[in-house]
Design a protein around this nucleic acid. Sequence first.
DNA 1: CTGAAAGCGCTTACAG
DNA 2: CTGAAAGCGCTTACAG
Lengths: 360, 360
Amino acid sequence: MSTIRKVAQAAGVSIATVSRVINHRASVTEEVRTKVLEAVNRCGYVPAVSRRNTALLALVYAGPASPGSSFDAALVEGMRLAMDSVDYDLVMLNPARDRAADETYTQYFLRKGVRGVILRSTAGFRAVCEEIAAEDFPAVVVGDRFPNSRLSFVYADSYGASKRAIGHLLALGHRRIAFAANESDDADHADRYRGYGDAMREAGATLHADLVFRVPARRPDGVQLLRNLMSAPTPPTAVYITDPAVAVGLVNEAHRMQVAIPRELSVIGFDDRDTRNYVHPKMTAVCQDATHLGRVAMLHLAALVEAGRHDVASPPPASTWLELNATTAPPPQGTVRVLHDGTRLDVPQALPPRRKSARR
Amino acid sequence: MSTIRKVAQAAGVSIATVSRVINHRASVTEEVRTKVLEAVNRCGYVPAVSRRNTALLALVYAGPASPGSSFDAALVEGMRLAMDSVDYDLVMLNPARDRAADETYTQYFLRKGVRGVILRSTAGFRAVCEEIAAEDFPAVVVGDRFPNSRLSFVYADSYGASKRAIGHLLALGHRRIAFAANESDDADHADRYRGYGDAMREAGATLHADLVFRVPARRPDGVQLLRNLMSAPTPPTAVYITDPAVAVGLVNEAHRMQVAIPRELSVIGFDDRDTRNYVHPKMTAVCQDATHLGRVAMLHLAALVEAGRHDVASPPPASTWLELNATTAPPPQGTVRVLHDGTRLDVPQALPPRRKSARR
DNA sequence: CTGAAAGCGCTTACAG
DNA sequence: CTGAAAGCGCTTACAG
């Protein structure tokens, strides 16, 4: 690999001049500058040593994002936007790829030129977070939180909005309200479940175990969820689904199974981006802004690094809100039950016509 | 900022030992190693100079991605996946942020430790691509292509699949087929328009200028598009929409306006991810895989950098395919026309019932 | 504006 | 396994 000396020789100048050109010092004539840059290209010069490329923050993850999740995409987008107002660049790192067997995380990050890390916590990643915290390397966790005084957590608190969502259903007259959540046991999902449980208990509604469903967070699982909900001996009249993809899958499957939403089943989904607008009917949802979370994480990490890490408190939780749209309505008169094969049982009494006919 | 010398003093060892620990050399006792690492943390040591952090490839972009576009998110996801099989890390760079006024792109990239760049071409970015090409820096362009022998282009050729899409509509009996595209004039959209035009001409179908619509690539524009299509004096019976968000917006608006898809209007959308599965009815679409494009771009760039750039030909175009789903059917008997306010005119003759009634 | 030379941060044979 | 010292790539006052 070419050094600065070889480039100097090729350009017929001193190494000092090459250095000046590369570092963009003022006092070089345009003519010399182009001559040197040509030599740089001809020799394929790459600086072997550099003083400046340690201005990196990293998004650290383990393996691919959860399939179909728009959360990570929005997160990265937010970080990219925040880049414009900090003096660091963002690099993606997968320690599973190239961290040496007995290398500490600090060593790994230092040799990458990384000054601080955003940890995208997924299942099984908490141990990595703990290890990095133990080494006291500047770090911010998104997507999970747990007691660790050395880590900053960036998250949106979904307890309050979840409780309000259930309150909305209760106010409409619902009592058999189902709850469906991801299989992962992160803190965010725990908040949503607490919101559900507290609202139900405070209203004196029965909180049956058979109203709680655990499903993977993928779209096809919404299909199965609808079938399981509607074929239960006494189906719920409403459901709160805490994963965007599952909620969309369920609403689409309802079209196919001819379950009328919201007339026969009210649905409150969850949205961390803008998915609620992409389904018909437009979905009532507990919402948070993953792009905003990405931005906050990046800005907070930059502040941590600047301050020499220990002095900066975690940012306050981002807001989560309930957005009322068209998938919630009062419960049906009577019980609507649909078997897996589409057979309808327990015909509700005094059912209004399925859908008003088109004007023509 | 601490140097290796200060750390050595703090740990009570020589600078050689500190260097060994930082670079993870074998012959250091566990005891000394932890002592040194503690000192590294205590001093807040950051390597001022380093030999290794020039293994970076960059995603270079200008400004934010097009609003609501999932293309960039999928692209980054693909690059992230490809990272696992190359020895480079991926960094995001926005030259508009910190490139010095009269600094060449080569200088800018070199001081960042970047060896090659993926250029995400958006409107107005082509000049940047040309400049980087003129400097002969290793670069791969995604999202656009144009004649420039010094650049590699990674893209999916959508001409063939677009032509097949229109062929499918023609075979169903459609003749008034509309075409709706993004306002940007990139090469990909030009391909799609050529495919449309050629299929129409070869079938002897009339190619009216009033069948071609230009709309921004955002979801709400699908709403306006449907209104414009359906309120035309003689509305088309089918439409090919070359942007995912617009297609989704149109299908959802059709529910609201009570336009029956596919019975009254056939829709072929465009999908670079999995959006077609998220609408009801499941959307017939010309499909490409943006994640795949991101992966190919990263692998190709790594090969370029390894080979000293000039010897590696662009990868062949990725495949684009037509996926038949539920939004296409034979044209209606007669003309269906719906005004902006929802009024239906020109009632079709022998119209079958709007929707088969639910089993109950 | 440019070069010769001192110097900086770090790495690495060499010696023990 | 560790240190003293030579050396490498690069930067930067200093001189002209």
